[in-house]
Write a protein that binds this DNA or RNA. Structure first.
Length: 556
RNA sequence: AGACCCAUGGUGUAACGGUAGCACUACAGAUUUUGGUUCUGUCUGUUAAGGUUCGAAUCCUUAUGGGUCUACCA
């Protein structure tokens, strides 16, 4: 039998080609290299997925390496959250937790090698002068007046930079690249700068810090990374990446660039996300509306759904804007399979069954998850006084309204068929305050002998036993799929003022008193909800994860 | 302006010179004690023009469009 070959993405093709050629004896080693200066978001999620899944597929390994070469912005607080997020996503670096700062000593030695080879020099030019020397993409750069210093002088100056003899910013170490290259990164890039900042790991050991270009590739090389996968904007860095490997004569890691994932209605700019937090549009980095991994976790998105989402969106080099509907589909797919069904009335209106024996309570057997019969069932109290959803009653129903209306019959889920006889309205507000029905005792779920058929089925809770819950209803954070794409308009103009609606007094079935933070439920007919950490024994709190798909078109 | 990257339905992604497929979305229908799920069906596509070839989404050229690069950030 021939198994259909699953199509490979372009990175897999490169890898398989390398394997065929016997490169590195077929060894595959990737790395996920976050900078510990912020929280992980949906974009990182894709990078994590690519690096870990690819290594897994080819029997390789993935390192976690913190790219911590800029002490000014980095902090251990982020290290911890990043590690937690990766683990939650379902990936493990098996103890290979490294830091670019682990290699500061080695990197310094590499710099000396370049100086010795006459390929690096200490430059006294100011930041502005260096910028001017770079030229423009269409005009070549000009030589720094310090470019031709002797090797001895460069050794001396660089060591004194390291020893703290010069103030911050006074000098830098630059590579002697190609000032005529159309690639700006080759025009004598800066390798080291002087910075008297406390580093979260090396403390005050160092006064000079390597730049990204002089740290990343060498770190890959030191760790024996075979395939260094990064996003497309680093493509112009690749010649430099290769140049250092060649000149330093070190292990040749290979950089491959892919297009990062963009998702509609989500933004990933650290600066912008921070603004949302600082200005109080969200409650924090883990607000359920945030595109951060912490936010999506709190929202109730299962890690499995995120992984599936990454898988389905593929790996390629073209710019993309993935519709958030696909993410939501993946979320629903997992939750439909796994979430326990419960009944919760978000906008309660009282329903009285006039012919139900006064004071009587029955226990109704309700299935926990029809998609997973092995999850069994539970007993839910039923009585003559219930709450149902306000929107499930219409005084003057439209033709296709299959729910409750004067004279109409519905099935109460896992209970009886009822018929609406009457209703009470508040004369002042015009609002329906009570609905009166009769029930058909022989229509009990499980042994219905009534022969009656109801077109609609409603969820309900028994008024006496229901408990109060807070439910947070979330909508998209932005009113526009690409809030940052509009020229002349700030993305803040598109913040959705209705992205959060708090329902303070939903009525939910009594079993939900024990809801554990993080647990997902399907509130029947309403959507998927996740118990929030703000829950108390007195009052559970739920976040809307995603509504159910709704094919009901409403009126007429 | 120069260099580099990219271009397949509304969206994302396959087809590796030989029938343009899959998923999401949208719409229609069947089933349903969740207007959910499941199932079936429908709509919409190779940026353009040349060239190579028996044959081009695929190879070549040009054009067009989009993106990236000109931080002592990563």
């Amino acid at each position: 039998m021939e198994d259909k070959k699953e199509p490979l993405n372009f990175i897999e093709e490169f890898i398989e080609e390398d394997i065929r050629n016997g490169k590195h004896a077929g060894r595959i080693h990737t790395r996920f290299p976050p900078e510990p200066n912020g929280y992980l978001h949906i974009g990182h999620c894709k990078a994590i997925w690519i690096n870990f899944e690819l290594a897994k597929k080819y029997g390789g390994k993935t390192n976690l390496r913190f790219d911590d070469t800029n002490p000014t912005t980095e902090d251990t607080e982020y290290v911890d959250s990043i590690k937690g997020d990766i683990h939650w996503l379902g990936y493990d670096w098996e103890g290979r937790e490294y830091y670019a700062s682990d290699y500061f000593g080695q990197l310094y030695e590499y710099a000396l090698v370049l100086i010795r080879k006459g390929l690096a020099y200490v430059d006294d030019s100011t930041q502005e002068e260096i910028a001017a020397q770079k030229g423009t993409p269409s005009q070549p750069g000009t030589e720094s007046p310090y470019r031709s210093r002797s090797i001895e002088e460069n050794f001396d100056l660089f060591e004194r930079m390291k020893n703290g003899e010069f103030p911050d910013g006074a000098r830098v170490l630059r590579a002697k690249g190609d000032l005529t290259s159309p690639n700006m990164h080759m025009r004598d890039p800066i390798l080291y700068r002087i910075k008297r900042d406390h580093h979260h790991r090396t403390g005050d050991d160092w006064l000079i810090y390597p730049m990204y270009d002089f740290a990343h590739g060498q770190s890959d090389s030191i760790e024996g990374i075979t395939h260094s996968l990064c996003s497309l904007e680093f493509i112009h860095h690749r010649p430099l990446y290769d140049w250092f490997i060649e000149k330093l004569e070190i292990f040749p890691s290979r950089q491959i660039e892919f297009a990062r994932m963009n998702v509609s209605y989500m933004i990933t700019s650290k600066r912008r996300l921070l603004k949302l937090v600082n200005e109080g549009h969200v409650s924090g980095w883990d607000d359920p509306r945030m595109p951060t991994i912490a936010g999506m976790r709190r929202r109730g998105y299962p890690a499995e759904a995120l992984r599936e989402f990454c898988k389905r969106t593929g790996v390629a080099k073209r710019d993309n804007l993935i519709e958030i509907e696909l993410l939501e589909h993946c979320v629903r797919e997992v939750l439909n399979r796994d979430a326990l069904r419960v009944m919760a009335v978000l906008d309660p209106v009282k329903l009285v069954i006039t012919n139900y024996p006064a004071g009587q309570t029955e226990l109704m057997e309700v299935e926990n998850n029809p998609e997973a019969p092995e999850t069994g069932s539970r007993q839910v109290p039923f009585s003559g006084e219930l709450y149902i959803e306000r929107e499930d009653f219409m005084e003057e129903p439209s033709k296709k309204f299959f729910r409750l209306a004067p004279g109409q019959m519905v099935r109460l889920k896992s209970a009886y068929i009822i018929q609406c006889e009457d209703f009470v309205k508040d004369p002042a507000t015009g609002q329906v305050t009570e609905i009166h029905c009769t029930y058909f005792p022989e229509s009990r779920s499980g042994n219905d002998t009534s022969g009656l058929k109801a077109k609609g089925t409603l969820h309900w809770v028994s008024a006496a036993q229901a408990i109060d819950a807070e439910v947070r209803m979330y909508e998209r954070l932005f009113t526009d799929p690409e809030p940052t794409s509009h020229e002349g308009k700030d993305f803040m103009e598109f913040v959705n003022p209705e992205s959060l609606r708090v329902i303070s007094h939903a009525q939910v079935e009594p079993g939900l008193r024990d809801a554990v933070s993080g647990q997902s439920y399907q509130f029947i007919r309403k959507g998927y909800f996740s118990a929030d950490a703000d829950s108390t024994p007195e009052k559970p709190v739920f976040n809307l994860t995603a509504t159910l798909k709704d094919s009901w078109k409403g009126g007429n």
